[in-house]
Structure formats: structure tokens, C-alpha cells
Amino acid sequence: MELQSVGEAFIRPGQILTDRSALSAAARWTQAVSEADGVCVIHLSAGTDPCEVTAELREQGLRASPNHVLRGQPLFFGGPASRPFPTPPIGFRPGRSRTDVVIGLLDTGVTKHPWWSGTDWYARLGPEEADAHEGTQAGHGTFIAGLLARRAPGAALRVSRVLDGDGLTDEATVVRALHRMRERPPDVLNLSFGGHSFDDRPPPLLSDAIAGLTGTVAVACAGNTASDRPFWPAALPSAVGVAAVDATEQHRAPFSGYGTWVDACARGDWLASSFLDSGDFAGYAAWSGTSFATALVAGAIADAARDEPAKEAAKRLLDSETARQIPDLGVLVPASL
């Protein structure tokens, strides 16, 4: 994927994201427009700065953003969150009970695995939802699916592949996937990816898309940035932003993002889960990152939602007056795996 660095944010060069209301105002910079699922991507004339056009459109009260690149958040400089490691098989037996809870999973896809063999939700997946088998983040979605399956047994997954094998996507792809969920919104939505925005303000179309899923609890990772810089979509008011703590569940994992915008935390250090069956891996791996802490929080909310609406379950689990809090990491959600 072609990308451009703007500070510590990444954008698709020559593109801005908007809705139809801004098309006429942006006409003088426009070379072409691609529209799908209620989202317009304006391809700008050569030499036009997407950030400058965005600023001018926003001054006119229009919804616009550079087409930010979002990542599944590996640690490119190395460390425990940078890659998965092979691990022996995990003794988990999925139960036969089923709940009515649906968890949306936007990620790299999900591959075949014994933990969900024979389930209705996996049988409904098409080849376009299969997990990537090549790239630095291949298996990311399968790993998260296993954490969700163990933390919320009986819940069904609704999978949409938005990340490539290297864990990359763009804002337009994610917003379109969110818009397609509106007819059948999930109870809980796991978003284990994100990024910084060029101006540290919330990307408006991404914010609108998540807020539009009014009955859904969106849970997003705080990023493996070791920084308090807002990370989107986790920092949105309409999302539950999740940081990672270490294996003791006492301290922030050194790679985790943090700050007043973080709502919850869970263990993200050396978790074991389902994985690809290829190379050195026999279907299982150990991995670290806020992506996986996010799955534990999303799974805990989904498990509680079998008895009450997901919004009420999240409110109860993340009640800062009754649950343990860690400064700049929010409410601790125990792993319980």
C-alpha cells in the first residue's frame, strides 16, 4: 500500500475522504471521485496537499479528512509485540451452548481452526474473509478470534477482512465496512487497529460511522506506541479504548499506549491463542500487543451481554466507581482465560 508520512501519522497520498456534501466545494482540486457505501474518496490533482485541502473544507463546516492509513500495530522496532511465536496446543474445548450475542471482527480475516469447526458463523464465511497467510500480520485475525471464542463462549463472530497481510488498511475501507454493518449491527465490535491523525483531531467520517452503530459497543486498541498521543478510533468518545497491562495485571505493558482517553485495560503481554497452521506454527501462537488486550475486553463485554444489552453490560463492567482502575489505563478487566 502506498502511503505518505505526515508527522507520526500516515495517509494515502493524493486522497481525501468525505461525503457528497463536500464534492462541489472540493471540485477545483478534484481529479476523480470514487464512491461506495456512502463514502467518497476524492483523488486530488497532482501536487495538491491533502492536509491543506482538508483544513480548508473543514473551515467551511464540511466533513473531510485525509485518507489515513490504519495499522494492526506491530512494533516495527522489535520487542515482544512485534511478532508471534510458536506455542504448544492449548487445551480449550468449545462448549455446545450458543448465545444470541454477535461480535463483529474487522481484521485480517479468520482461518480454519478446531475451536470453531462446525460452528454456524464460520460456515457462513466466504473466501474473502479468510485470514491472510503471508505478511507480518498474517494470523492476526485468527489469533483475536480465538481470544474472543474463549472469553465469550457461544457468541457468534461476524468477520470482515479489512487489513492486509501486513496489517494495513485505510480509513475509507474501514468506514465503508462500518456502513455495511448498519442493517445488521453486531452487539460488540472488535477493532484491533488504528493510527494517529495528521492533526490529532478525531477523523470525522470514522467518528460518524462508529457513532452511527448506536446499539453496538465498539472496542478499539490504544496502540503499541508507548505514547499518550491520541490513537484513533480508540480515542473516540463512542469507542472503548483499551490499553495493555503486563502478565501480573498490575502495570502498563511497556509498549502500550496510554492517557486520559483510554477507558479500559487488560493483559496484553504474552497471550496464547489460535493461529495459522503453517511453517513453524501448528495452529497456536503466543503474541503480545494492545490488539489482544482489546479482544479480552470485547469478549468480556460480549459474555456479559448474554444477560443484558451490550451497552448496559459495558457500562457495568467499566464502572469506574466499583472496578479497579490504573492511572492512564482506565478500568482493569481481568483476563479470565
Rank of each mutant, 00 (worst) to 15 (best):
E2R: 10
E2I: 15
Q4G: 13
V6T: 00
V6G: 01
G7S: 06
I11A: 10
R12V: 15
R20G: 09
A22K: 00
S24W: 02
S24R: 14
S24V: 11
R28M: 07
A36Y: 05
G38L: 02
I42R: 10
R58V: 06
E59L: 14
R63T: 07
A64S: 06
P66I: 00
Q73V: 12
L75M: 14
F77E: 14
I90H: 03
F92R: 08
S97K: 14
R98Y: 06
V102S: 12
G104F: 14
T108M: 02
P114V: 01
W115D: 08
W116Q: 10
S117Y: 05
G118A: 06
D120V: 05
D131K: 09
H133E: 15
G146N: 05
R150C: 09
R151P: 00
A155H: 01
V159A: 11
V159E: 12
S160G: 10
S160D: 10
D164G: 08
L168V: 12
L168G: 10
T169P: 03
E171Q: 15
A177S: 13
L178T: 10
L178Q: 08
R180N: 13
E183D: 14
R184M: 06
P185E: 13
P186C: 02
P186T: 01
N190K: 05
S192I: 10
S192L: 11
D200C: 05
D200S: 09
L206F: 03
D208F: 03
D208E: 14
V217M: 04
G223L: 00
A226C: 02
S227N: 08
S227G: 08
S227L: 03
A243V: 05
A247S: 12
S256Y: 12
T260E: 11
S274V: 15
S278A: 14
F281K: 11
G283C: 02
Y284N: 06
A286W: 00
A286Q: 09
T290Q: 00
F292H: 15
T294I: 15
T294V: 13
A295K: 06
A304K: 08
A304R: 09
A310H: 06
A314E: 02
K315S: 11
R316E: 04
D319T: 07
D319L: 05
A323V: 13
S336D: 11
